[in-house]
């Protein structure tokens, strides 16, 4: 049964990707991308990666299509037919890379074998001991937020960097020799009364759900990143329906920018606390007398930092993109 689902999902993925190669037009491409995201999320569920599936559904079928759509709303959905086509070169390069990859797979251990080297060396410790060492049932959370917490700090910095980069790039300022772009034919003054009423009742629940996901990550799929995405989605939904000025009045852009830095600082300072007491960076054992309690406090605090930064950066990015739309699109 599992195998059948596996094969079906993989075939659908190939079909979607192939359709993306063939299709012209950006709107169709964005739809296919989000289908691809959703299919891969389903595939991750079959592969037992529930946390990853949750995240991929939020990112691959949520945030990334949203950003793509906002861009297309500014630019227009047209894709030129033969623009920059270098098919022969591309086929050659892709062929070589693919062949090398296939060669690489030949000596790989068979799919799904429990005695594959990947499952025998580092991972068993996480499965056997993380319950005792951190007191958290979700092994993905304990590895993410404790054993490899430094990677996760890096991840938060990546998101923070993206926020800084987007503001830097989109901040007002024109380049020498800029051409006046043609305005895209989009009408924003369309009243969405029904949507507004429905969403007004939905948004509080979304925000509430975000808090649930934030603090439930220890026991099931979830955690700071997913919570941040959901929280930001609620805010963005409000912005999409009531317009950028309305949402900016509620949550002012400079405040969100500061919050994006605040989340990183919460994470970093937690690590520095350990250093001040003579333990390595991000060693949570200094946070409480009981080692398991200490781990749980540490994980909760850094997940909070992740959530704050992710939510604020996504809102910052949305503001920057929507602002382009308001100034260029009309």
């Amino acid at each position: 049964m599992e195998l059948a689902v596996n094969i079906v999902l993989l075939s659908l993925l190939v079909t979607t990707a192939a359709a993306l190669v063939l299709v012209r037009g950006l709107l169709a491409s964005i739809m296919l991308t989000s289908i691809y995201g959703l299919l891969s999320a389903s595939f991750f569920v079959i592969m037992d990666a529930v946390d990853v599936a949750f995240t991929e559904a939020a990112v691959g079928a949520g945030v990334s299509p949203l950003l793509l759509l906002l861009s297309v709303a500014v630019i227009g959905r047209h894709e030129a037919r033969n623009a920059g086509a270098r098919p022969l070169f591309a086929v050659l390069l892709v062929g070589i890379t693919g062949a090398l990859l296939i060669v690489g797979t030949l000596d790989m251990p068979a799919f799904g074998r429990a005695d594959a080297p990947a499952h025998l060396h580092v991972a068993p410790r996480y499965l056997l001991l993380s319950g005792e060492e951190t007191g958290i049932p979700n092994v993905v959370t304990s590895v993410l937020a404790s054993y490899r917490a430094y990677d996760t700090l890096g991840e938060v910095i990546v998101i923070f960097t993206a926020g800084v980069a987007v503001i830097l790039i989109l901040a007002s300022g024109t380049h020498r020799g800029s051409a006046r772009p043609h305005s895209a034919p989009v009408d924003t003054k369309d009243p969405h009364t029904i949507l507004q009423v429905v969403s007004k009742t939905m948004i509080p629940f979304m925000l509430l759900f975000a808090f649930y996901v934030q603090f439930h990550g220890d026991y099931g799929p979830g955690g700071g990143f997913q919570a941040g995405v959901i929280f930001a989605s609620g805010i963005i939904l409000y912005g999409l329906l009531y317009g950028l000025p309305a949402i900016c009045r509620v949550i002012r852009p400079p405040v969100v920018e500061l919050c994006s830095a605040l989340g990183v600082l919460v994470y970093g300072v937690t690590g520095i606390l350990s250093m001040l007491q003579g333990r390595p960076f991000l060693d949570y054992s200094v946070l409480a007398d009981d080692p398991i309690r200490a781990q749980q406090i540490g994980i909760m605090v850094i997940e909070l930092g992740v959530g704050i930064t992710v939510a604020s950066v996504l809102i910052v990015i949305y503001y920057a993109f929507a602002n382009q739309f308001e100034t260029n699109g009309n």
Binding site: V122, Y126, Y147, R148
Partner: peptide, 13 residues
């Protein structure tokens, strides 16, 4: 060598 998070390599970074 510096074990980040206090977890010895190869389990930690």
């Amino acid at each position: 060598s510096y074990a980040l998070g206090g977890w010895a390599a190869p389990w930690g970074i």
